[in-house]
């Protein structure tokens, strides 16, 4: 494998502002980050440091203002809005802190949505959704509405949804924050064992220290920049413990 082809995401000097004039907030102040294929990268840091903004730029749901960023060789800045939407539909899976399931449709239908967006028929998409629900251990709950499931089960449905179309990138924003410790671990094990693959990168935003152990590498952010990247969570603890 060459160096280039093993890289999933490459960002250099990414800057992102919100708003204009006096109200302008700079959320990213020059982010350099590389994520490899088959890697589970965690983004950690204090609230408001720009983690969500960064994964939004990486996932192609937010335009950067400056800098360079390629995701699997594609630069969103060079794509039309339509092409980018399409690209997201084919290549990105999303997992959210609040699950973001549609409450009035069943678990299987929620999971099937990305396939339907890509044009798959209802029946085939539902069949595939049930298979993926099986993989996350919810094979028997496919008819359930989100409200009939526990938080952990809902997040498993969301993970199934992020996987179903075989995306190359999965981004998760605080996937375990709304869950208790044990459930959080179940979710992380699923992400690590089921979602992660050789050719797929996972970027997980979290400030839940209890799950740091699942990361291949951890990028620590502060005030719109990546401060450092570590492979062993203990380095992070050691570095942060005294001051805070």
């Amino acid at each position: 494998m060459t160096e280039a082809s093993s890289i999933a995401i490459e960002c250099k000097g990414v800057v992102k502002h919100y708003g204009q004039g006096a109200a302008r907030v700079t959320a990213l102040r020059g982010v350099d980050l590389t994520v490899r294929k088959g890697e589970l990268l965690m983004l950690v840091g204090p609230s408001g440091c720009g983690k969500t903004t960064l994964i939004s730029v990486i996932a192609g749901v937010l335009d950067r203002n400056e800098g360079a960023c390629t995701v699997f060789g594609e630069d969103f800045a060079r794509m039309s809005a339509r092409a980018r939407t399409r690209w997201r539909g084919e290549n990105v899976g999303f997992v959210f802190q609040a699950f973001n399931l549609i409450p009035t449709i069943t678990a299987a239908e929620n999971v099937a949505v990305p396939l339907m967006i890509l044009g798959e028929g209802h029946g085939a998409a539902i069949r595939r959704a049930r298979e993926v629900l099986e993989m996350v251990g919810l094979g028997d709950r496919w008819r359930a509405l989100p409200a009939q499931l526990s938080g952990g089960q809902q997040q498993r449905v969301a993970i199934a949804r992020s996987l179903i179309h075989g995306p190359r990138l999965i981004v998760c924003d605080e996937p375990t924050s709304a869950l208790d410790h044990q459930t959080g671990h179940v979710i992380m094990r699923l992400l690590k064992n089921v979602a992660l693959r050789e050719d797929r990168a996972l970027v997980i935003v979290t400030h839940d220290a209890r799950i740091f152990g699942f990361a291949d590498r951890i990028a620590e952010m502060d005030d719109g920049r990546i401060e450092r990247i570590v492979t062993d969570p203990r380095e992070l603890m050691a570095g942060t413990a005294p001051g805070r």
Binding site: G89, V92, F94, I117
Partner: peptide, 13 residues
């Protein structure tokens, strides 16, 4: 709107 937003992120044009 929130659900439409989710659909949009997931690639619905």
């Amino acid at each position: 709107l929130r659900h439409f937003g989710t659909l949009k992120a997931m690639g619905a044009g």
